[in-house]
Simulated assay, not measured.
Amino acid sequence: MIYFFIPIFLFLSTLFSFIYPRKVVDKIFFAFLVLFIISFLFIIFGFGYENVDRDNYILLFEEIKGGGSGFITSQIGLVILFKFFILIGISYQTSIIVIFLIGMTFIHAFVSKYAKNLPFVYLLYFIYPFFLDAIQIKHFLAMSILIFASARLFSTGSKLSTLLLFFLAASFHYIAFFFIPFLFLSSLKIKKFTMVVVVSTVIIFVIVKFNLYLFLLSSDAMLFRVQSYLENAPKLGFLIQIAIQLFILSIVLYLSRKFEKNCVNKSFIDFIVYLNIYLLIMLPFYMINGNFERVFRVSYIPNFVYLSIYFMSLDLKDRLLMTITSIGVMIVLSSWYFSGVLDLTIYPIIEYNYFFELMEFNNL
């Protein structure tokens, strides 16, 4: 039953995303649709009780509950958060619900401020990479803080508060450290910024190609932390991820020229352009391990918002065509990422869900 419900959900969300809230009644309906989609995400994220990473998080939760301080690979932010949850007496499952609410608060603050079509953004996010975020809760928290902080940097110019938010994100997942140079380079003019990024990418490529990065791993603790990333290096699969990223960058640059002719939020447009150019530095890392795609994954929601701005500037016919195309591309992309691992990712999250079982969706 649930597998029948999800396509209906996708279809209705797509259909109603054509509505632009001009009248009061449209605004009410639009808000209801956004609430419906977020509630659906909330149910999947907060009430699932089986996924590939769950045992590790429960082990950490129980370790802290027993008086421990976490493991060598535990991020301090998550440890402190779990300690707080245990202190106030809530269970692990309830803590997952709270974590979703925290992360979604940052995400929705960002999306509602800039997006022209919120259902469209959340629909694409649901297709990919939401299910990964429902599994990798540390990444979800870090990603939500990063996109909120990065956009705020371009709108307010406050480097200190942004840096503090970056460190907060890093306390949940180390991917945030990749964005600290972005903070300081973002004040450069676009041409100089691009040159610095390209030169840096070439240097990183040389370092990766000749395994020079191994000399940087001076301590056993550091080597242990990243060891899983150094194993099973992809042969040619990284070329697909590079192609995907370059394709997205080309779309971003193409639309930026379109936006120059329209009156749109320049600080946000600059943020998206700078972000996608900056993430070119990740290309060499894919040669080490495909898991470095997690860093690029931070850009998906901002890019969906960026696309929604252009989306709502089109007439209804072109909007329909663009919606179908965007959904099709994301489904293909999601299928590629989840190929061969559906039994470890999407299926368990949907099959083992307290809410769906209560509603008996999985038994029909």
Results as ranks from 00 to 15, higher is better:
Phe4Asp: 14
Ile6Val: 15
Ile19Lys: 09
Lys27Gln: 04
Ile28Ala: 13
Phe30Ile: 04
Val34Asp: 08
Ile38Cys: 11
Gly48His: 11
Asn51Leu: 07
Asp55Val: 12
Tyr57Val: 09
Gly68Glu: 01
Ser69Arg: 05
Leu78Gln: 11
Leu81Met: 11
Phe85Cys: 09
Gln93Asp: 15
Thr94Arg: 04
Ile97Ser: 13
Val98Asp: 09
Ile99Lys: 06
Ile102Lys: 09
Met104Phe: 11
Thr105Leu: 07
Phe106Val: 10
Ile107Cys: 04
Ile107Lys: 14
Phe110Tyr: 13
Lys113Val: 00
Lys113Leu: 05
Tyr114Val: 04
Ala115Asp: 01
Ala115Arg: 01
Leu123Lys: 04
Leu124Gln: 01
Phe126Met: 10
Phe126Gly: 02
Tyr128His: 08
Asp133Asn: 14
Ala134Gly: 05
Ile137Arg: 02
Leu141Gln: 07
Ala142Gln: 07
Ile145Gly: 15
Ala149Gly: 12
Ala149Ile: 05
Ala149Tyr: 02
Phe154Gln: 01
Ser158Ala: 08
Thr162Cys: 08
Leu165Pro: 11
Phe166Asn: 03
Phe179His: 08
Pro181Val: 07
Phe182Tyr: 13
Leu185Ala: 04
Met195Ile: 13
Met195His: 06
Val197Gln: 06
Thr201Ile: 10
Ile203Thr: 05
Phe205Gln: 05
Phe205Trp: 11
Phe205Ser: 11
Lys209Gln: 15
Leu214His: 11
Ser218Ala: 11
Ser219Lys: 06
Arg225Ser: 10
Tyr229Met: 12
Asn232Leu: 01
Ala233Phe: 05
Phe247His: 09
Ile248Glu: 06
Ile248Asn: 07
Ser250Leu: 12
Ser256Pro: 09
Asn265Glu: 14
Ser267Phe: 03
Ile281Ala: 03
Met282Tyr: 10
Tyr286Val: 06
Ile288Cys: 03
Asn289Glu: 08
Phe292Ile: 05
Ile301Asp: 00
Phe304Pro: 00
Leu307Glu: 00
Leu314Thr: 03
Thr325Arg: 09
Val329Thr: 06
Met330Thr: 10
Ser335Asp: 11
Tyr337Val: 14
Thr345Ala: 06
Ile346Gln: 05
Tyr354Ala: 15
Leu358Phe: 15
Phe361Pro: 01
Phe361Glu: 01
Leu364His: 12
